[in-house]
């Protein structure tokens, strides 16, 4: 969209698998009261990419609303996920079906370990990532904040590394900023904090660590006013990015007056 003004204060684009995005906020499409509210929140967030899940068609109830009727796949980049997959085989099967249904190669891989934590199973994730990349997919990968596995996933050819800030749906924010920063420093592909953001400051903190973007669902969908929170998140991501690029002042242990010391009466 070269003739459109950038939607953020910064002109620096987020480039994923060769495509440029002006928004650094990716939003989910789950847990909303309705698809209509979902669409309103996605627009308020300024998101260009939305994650979507793949599920069986409800044959008995074909009159039910469809996601595509509210979030136009021509306006939003659909990012099919593998939520609910606990093995590499399930994840690969799901994303091949997603590619057939939508025709897109860009996918979000997540292979979960258990239902209580939804923590990623990293060995299965790596197996699935390799299989998908071999099959021509562009894989954005949900992963733990382990820099070693992050490097293995990048070496395997993933187009974005997406470590958790904290557990999916927990709203606990970035629990291990040191590891997130280590991943940022070593990674040559975009790093996106996926999961754990609870409120706007969490998103800003993630961006101030130098990550390239933030992916969230529950923080917006479970807010009392999801559309307003979506707007807050948009501003937080922009603010965090700007602060990171601006370069923060050094921390000091004692006060440093802002007004001149000379000329005091």
């Amino acid at each position: 969209m070269p003739d459109q003004a950038p939607t953020t204060a910064t002109d620096d684009a987020l480039i994923i698998a060769g495509k440029a995005y002006s928004s650094r906020l990716i939003v989910g499409t789950g847990k909303y009261a309705s698809y209509a509210q979902n669409a309103e929140a996605a627009e308020a967030a300024g998101a260009e990419i939305v994650t979507v899940a793949l599920r069986r068609v409800n044959v008995a109830d074909k009159g039910s609303e469809r996601l595509v009727d509210h979030l136009d796949p021509k306006l939003f980049t659909y990012l099919p996920n593998t939520a609910g997959c606990y093995t590499a085989d399930e994840a690969v099967r799901t994303l091949r079906l997603a590619r057939e249904a939508g025709g897109w190669n860009l996918v979000k891989l997540e292979v979960l370990a258990d239902q209580k934590t939804l923590y990623p199973d990293m060995s299965e994730t790596l197996i699935a990532a390799k299989a998908l990349i071999q099959d021509g997919f562009d894989v954005m990968v949900y992963c733990s904040d382990d820099p070693v596995y992050a490097r293995k996933l990048e070496d395997a050819g993933c187009c974005a590394i997406m470590p958790l800030g904290s557990l999916i749906g927990s709203g606990l924010g970035v629990q291990n900023p040191v590891n997130i920063r280590l991943i940022v420093e070593q990674c040559k592909v975009p790093v996106i904090v996926d999961a754990g953001v609870g409120t706007a400051s969490d998103a800003a903190i993630a961006m101030e660590l130098g990550v390239d973007g933030v992916l969230m669902n529950t923080a917006i969908a479970a807010a009392k006013d999801p559309v307003r929170m979506a707007r807050a998140m948009k501003h937080a991501v922009i603010a965090g990015r700007e602060a990171y690029l601006a370069g923060r002042m050094a921390k000091k242990r004692y006060a440093d007056p802002s007004s001149p010391l000379g000329g005091l009466i």
Partner: peptide
């Protein structure tokens, strides 16, 4: 036979 479609998800 499985028939699937996109639904909301995170």
């Amino acid at each position: 036979i499985e028939i699937v479609q996109f639904v909301g998800g995170g």
